[in-house]
Write a protein that binds this DNA or RNA. Structure first.
Lengths: 344, 344
DNA sequence: ATGATGAATGTAAACGCTTACAAAAATATT
DNA sequence: AATATTTTTGTAAGCGTTTACATTCATCAT
C-alpha cells in the first residue's frame, strides 16, 4: 500500500541496498547519496520501522516500568526518561505495575515487554522480592536492564540510584540536633526504596544507642494516591491515638504518605511542627505547596530519569558493557514542618 | 537466534500455517490445536510481534501524546489509558510534546508515531492550530485517532471530551450567585481546552450583559509545573498590583495556574477568599491539599482516559467506524477558596 | 460404496527492510 | 599501461510471521 524502499531505489536509479546504506549512514559515495536523498524527499518515504526491527532485532524502543503515575515522584522520572529517549530516536513503552506492587505483576509486565522485543527495559523502584530467584539478574543477562532506585543488592544489573541511606542519615541527624529522640518511621509495604531507608534507620538507631520502639515503625500498603490520602488520615489518627508514648518526630518514606500523615496528625489534634515534626521524602511539588511546607529529601527525579535513559541506550548500542552503578547524593531540604522538640 | 514458529510446527507435526491459526484463533480442529498448544508450552514459544506487525500492519500498540506529565491532570489520564490498554493486550507508547505546546512539535510527534506503525493514536488536549490545514482530520483518515479534550470543532476525528463550556457556566453562575461581577480569567496560551472555556466565558458575559474588561483576561505561556509555580507568583503579583480596578473573583483554566495565582495573590496581600475568590479547574489532588482548599471543576481524568482507550481499540479493530463524540459532564466542587463578594 | 460438499491443513508468497557476498568501479602502485 | 588494492554498488537471501490458494480429509446424501 505505502511506498517502499524499492520505489525509492528505482527513482534514484540505485539498488535497495544503497538506499538502505544511505539511511543507515553506511559508506556511500557523496553523489549517490544525494540522489537517494532527493528521491526520498520526492517520494516522501520513511523507512518502516517494524521491518527494520525484524531484521536487526532492534525496534528502537525501551520499556519503562513504574508502579504508578499518580505519585509525582514517578511521573517526573517517567517524563525525563521519555524526553531523553526521544531525543536520541528511541521510543518509550510505558507500563505500570499498579500501586499494589505485587512482584508477580511486575514480572509479568517485564516479561510482556521482553516478548514484545523492546531493546531494553528501565524499571523504577523494582521490588526486592523480584530478585529472589535471580529474576532481574537473569533478565539483565539477556536484555539491557537498568533499575532506578531498586535494591542495591541487585546483582549484575545496571543501577541508577540515589544514596538513600545517606539521605536517611541526614534526616535523622538533623532531627537529632533538634532534640528529637522518638522518631516514627512510616513506610510503604513492598518498596525497594523503603527497605533501604529502613535499614539505614535501624542502623542509625543502633549507632546512637537508641532502642528502637517497634510501635514507631508503621507499614502501609499501596502507594496509590487517592487511597493513601484518604486511608492514611484514618489510620494515622487511630495509630497515634492508641500510642501511649507519642513520638516527637515522624519520617515518611514518600511524600504522599507524609501528606496523609500530616492530615492524620491534624485530625488527631497535633500541631505540626509544634507537637510533632514531620519529614517527607522526594521533594515533590506537594512538599512546598502544603502548609506547613514539608522538610524533605530532594530526589532529583529528572536527573535519575535522564541518567537511566542514557545508560540504557549505551547498553543497547553496546557501549560500556559491564554493569555500572550510578549514584546520586540526596540533599536535605529544610522547610517549616520541623522544629526543635517541644520543651527545649 | 530464538525459537521460531517453524520449530513449534515441527514439534507439533503440523505446518507453520496451522500454528499461526491456533494463536490467532482461526478455525482449527480441536485435536491439532491441543498438539500445537502442547508444543508451544514445551518450547516456551511466543510469537515475535515485530514479524506479526510487519505482516498485518498491526503491532498492537497505540501512541499516547500529552503535553507534559508534570501536571497531574495529564498523568492521571495517561495512567488510565495505559491501564485500559494493557488490559486488552495493547501497549502504549508515550510521547510528550513539551510544555511549550508548539503545534509543530505536536505534529512531529504524531508523525513519528505514525511512521513507527502504531495502530492508533490518542492525543490529549490537541491544540486547535493543528487542524488549521486539516492535519488531524487528514490523519484520522489514515489511522484511528482519538482526541481527548481537544477542540470540539475537530472534524472527522473521534472525540472524548468533557463539556467544558457547561462547566464554565456552572462556575460563573455560582460566582455570580455569590455577588461576583468582575471575574478574571487566567488561561494558558496554546491550549485547546482554554479556548473552549474562554468562548464560554465571553458568551456568558455577553448574556449577562456584563461588559468584559480585557484587562481581566490574562494569558500565560506554558504549563510546565516548575515554571508555572515560580513564574506565576511573580506575574500575578505584578498584574494585580498594576490593575486599578481589582476583580473580586478569579478563574484559572488549570490547577497549576490556580496554585500559582493563589501564591501571587497572597504575596500581593490579598486574602483568599476574603478579598478575592479563586476557582481552579480539573480537581487534581492539589486542589484539596492546598489551603484554602480550592473550589474547582471535576474532570474525571480516569474516565476520560478509559473511554479514549476503549474507543481507540474499537476503531482499530474495526468496530463503530464513523467518528464518535463521547461527552462527559463536569461537576462543580465547592471548597473554601470561594466566598460571597466582600461587603454583601 | 460413490460422489458432492465443506472443513481442516499445507505450500509458498508476501510484508519491507538489512546485510553477507560478489561484482564493478575507482584509485593506487609499479 | 597494466596490475593490485580499495571503495562503491548490486544481488539475493534472510528476519519470523500471516494468508491466499491449493490440497487433503472428513462428512453426508444418494
Amino acid at each position: 500500500m505505502g511506498i517502499r524502499i524499492e520505489d525509492v531505489a528505482r527513482e534514484a536509479g540505485v539498488s535497495t541496498a544503497t538506499v538502505s546504506r544511505v539511511i543507515n549512514n553506511h559508506p556511500v559515495r557523496e553523489k549517490t547519496k544525494e540522489k537517494v536523498i532527493a528521491a526520498m524527499g520526492k517520494l516522501k518515504w520513511e523507512p518502516n520501522l517494524l521491518a527494520r526491527g525484524l531484521n536487526t532485532g532492534r525496534g528502537k524502543t525501551v520499556g519503562v516500568v513504574v508502579p504508578s503515575l499518580t505519585n509525582p515522584y514517578f511521573s517526573e522520572i517517567v517524563e525525563s526518561i521519555e524526553t531523553s529517549l526521544t531525543g536520541v530516536g528511541y521510543l518509550g513503552i510505558l507500563m505500570s505495575t499498579g500501586a499494589d506492587r505485587s512482584d508477580a505483576r511486575e514480572r509479568e509486565v517485564v516479561e510482556t515487554l521482553a516478548r514484545r522485543g523492546v531493546d531494553g527495559i528501565i524499571v523504577v523502584d523494582g521490588t526486592d522480592e523480584n530478585n529472589h530467584n535471580g529474576f532481574f539478574s537473569a533478565l539483565a543477562g539477556r536484555l539491557p536492564l537498568v533499575v532506578i532506585n531498586g535494591s542495591p543488592s541487585l546483582d549484575g544489573v545496571d543501577l541508577v540510584m540515589t544514596d538513600q541511606a545517606s539521605g536517611m542519615v541526614k534526616v535523622l541527624d538533623y532531627l537529632y540536633s533538634l532534640g528529637h529522640r522518638r522518631i516514627a518511621f512510616f513506610r510503604a509495604d513492598r518498596e525497594a526504596s523503603a527497605d533501604v531507608k529502613m535499614d539505614a534507620y535501624l542502623a542509625w538507631l543502633e549507632e546512637r544507642g537508641l532502642t528502637g520502639d517497634p510501635g514507631l515503625i508503621v507499614r502501609f500498603a499501596g502507594v496509590n494516591r487517592s487511597r493513601i490520602l484518604v486511608e492514611m488520615e484514618e489510620s494515622v489518627y487511630s495509630w497515634i491515638s492508641r500510642l501511649e508514648e507519642k513520638p516527637s518526630a515522624l519520617f515518611a518514606c514518600n511524600e504522599l504518605m507524609a501528606l496523609g500523615a500530616l492530615r492524620g496528625l491534624e485530625k488527631a489534634g497535633f500541631d505540626v511542627p509544634g507537637d510533632i515534626s514531620l519529614v517527607g521524602h522526594d521533594n515533590t511539588p506537594y512538599a512546598s505547596l502544603v502548609k506547613p511546607a514539608l522538610t524533605t529529601v530532594e530526589m532529583k527525579m529528572s536527573e535519575l530519569g535522564g541518567a537511566a535513559a542514557r545508560r540504557i541506550i549505551d547498553r543497547i548500542e553496546g557501549r560500556g558493557t559491564d554493569p555500572q552503578r550510578i549514584l546520586f547524593s540526596p540533599e536535605l531540604i529544610i522547610r517549616n514542618s520541623t522544629a526543635p522538640v517541644a520543651g527545649i
